[in-house]
Amino acid sequence: MKKALSLILASALTLTMAGCTITIGGGLGDGTATTGGDVSSDGSFYAGKTVTMIVPWAAGGGADTAVRLVCDYAEDILGCTIVISNVAGGGGSIGLQQLVTSNPDGLTLAYVANTDSNGDVMLEGITYTVDSFAPVCVFAEDPHIIVASKDSGITDLASLEAAGASGETSWGIGGAWTHWDFLKMEFEEATGTNYHRVVYDGGTTAITDVASGDCDVATPFISEAMSQIDAGNVVPVAVTSAERNPSCPDIPTLAEQGLDGFDSTMWRGVVAPAGTPESYLREFAEAVGEACQNPELLERAQTAGTTISFIGYDEFQDYFMENHESVRSYVEQADF
């Protein structure tokens, strides 16, 4: 009760201070929350405001598509306008740098994925650390599909493990220091195998080389893999998530094939600058959670090849730190 009261007070205060923003943003909202009075009475902070969502990658990429999709629905729930700002360059660091130096007022948020919190060890000249961020929520978890070339004779986990004994089987990844690299390390650690690392400039290039037989194994995302799988040019081995994916229900998981508890996905989430009031972030996370249950969004996401999966505010706090530590230890042990 006390909390709710303080929340109302805080939002009322902010609304008075940011009166200007409200009048501008209000016209763009859904029309129900145009005046400050209405907004504070239901305790909503975001209604009628304009939020900047920094996507540190170019427009039209996988990250951009997923963010736009979710924000499209979250916007209606929050009654605010979300402006997507693609600040690309520096391996994602320029956009995140812009985030951590912006006001922690809840109106500037950014897209984040597995490896971003470790920019200070993986990249160079990065001033932000994991403590510069306030994690908000996760909205998608994209599994990889392990595919093998037809000549390799690999069809399931057992034959994949057998091929990984000598260290000569080539394993194509879509980019250095990305989740592709960490997935390979996680798999090798879990099975005690070792593969020959080949770095491509994307999952599609890798799977094309698997289809032509130049490379033995690759781990593209679903959107990159399905057409080659359907055409029968590559052999699907497993999906890397804990459960089967609705886009390809026939492909078994690694866990089903005996690798207990193996779950490695590229998650996509939202962060705010550290110091942003928790109540705002909770409101935002809840709206995203509600959006993630919208069947229309789920259908559009599946068409676009993204797997919607929501992790709420509380759970994400721990998940974010665990993931940070895990990636950090892999970076420090990495030996190419």
Binding site: A59, G60, G61, G62, D64, T65, T204, T205, T208, S223, E224, M226, S227, Q228, D230, A231, N233, T303, A304, G305
Partner: peptide
């Protein structure tokens, strides 16, 4: 193949995927 040969082609790719018209052999 779903491989973009130029920067605009990469944007084509994402537009196609979003519309469920997935490039590739099929």
């Amino acid at each position: 193949l779903g491989i973009p040969g130029s920067a605009p082609a990469a944007l084509f790719l994402s537009a196609m995927i979003l519309h469920g018209v997935r490039p590739g052999p099929t």
